[in-house]
Amino acid sequence: MKILGKLTILLCGVLLMVFAMEFPNWGDPESPASTHLSPYFIQHTMEDTAVPNIVTSVLADYRGYDTMFETTVILTAGLACFLLLRIERKKIPHRYYRHEPTGVTLRMEGEKYPKNSAVFQRMDANWVPYDFVISRTCRLIIPFIQIFALYVVAHGHHSPGGGFQGGVIMGASVILFAISHNLRTSIKNFSEKTAALFSVTGVFIYAGTGALCLLFGEVFLNYSALAPILGGDRVMARSHGILVVEIGVAVAVTAVMIWIYYNLSSAGKQDEGL
């Protein structure tokens, strides 16, 4: 089986090498992409989609299928991490608690454990969260990071940015929270179920926008069909449609980043860890 896998990889590599020889040279002005596609995009983007940023319009409109399946790939990565790593939470025979007024750490065994309170605080066995300065600073910074993430998502039409970048920044803010406090606090605020639900919702928003275009009697992902809902003429509808799709991408990327982080940092147990 191992030999078979290696042979497959070798075959794919050789095929890739062989066909890479046929490709046009890097930056070749005579290549089909430079003679047909690029001039069209550069000249017609504004009148077709009313989006000043050509990259965004190519990514989410002209090449919408590709981006939809990119989002699906990200969802698949999250699912793969989940299926490979997630294990049933085993009952840990003991837990550690800190008694706040005295500062004593207690090890408790048995079935019943005290609830987390101001007096008794549960601690991880292996991971000690960072101290006061770091957790407070992260709490101060995280809202700004999230506002910036929303800005990047919404401003993808006019400047570098868009769903993928904004989603990653948004996910990083939650991961920062998890690092500066601990995994349990983070899961309490943004649970694994929420992450899974949001990652599917993001892909659903994207594919659903495409399907809605079908319902209005046009081609899949042809946002002009949505002009009656989104308002404006058919060109502005494309611009708005791109924004809707970008929001879907951002939701999916955010949730998948957090989901992968939860599974990787706790080795799939999600009880304690970074």
Partner: peptide, 16 residues
């Protein structure tokens, strides 16, 4: 402002 908040905190975390 943000560098003033985050840079000393990062230094603090590394020292920690």
């Amino acid at each position: 402002v943000f560098v003033f908040i985050t840079s000393p905190t990062a230094t603090h975390a590394i020292v920690d």
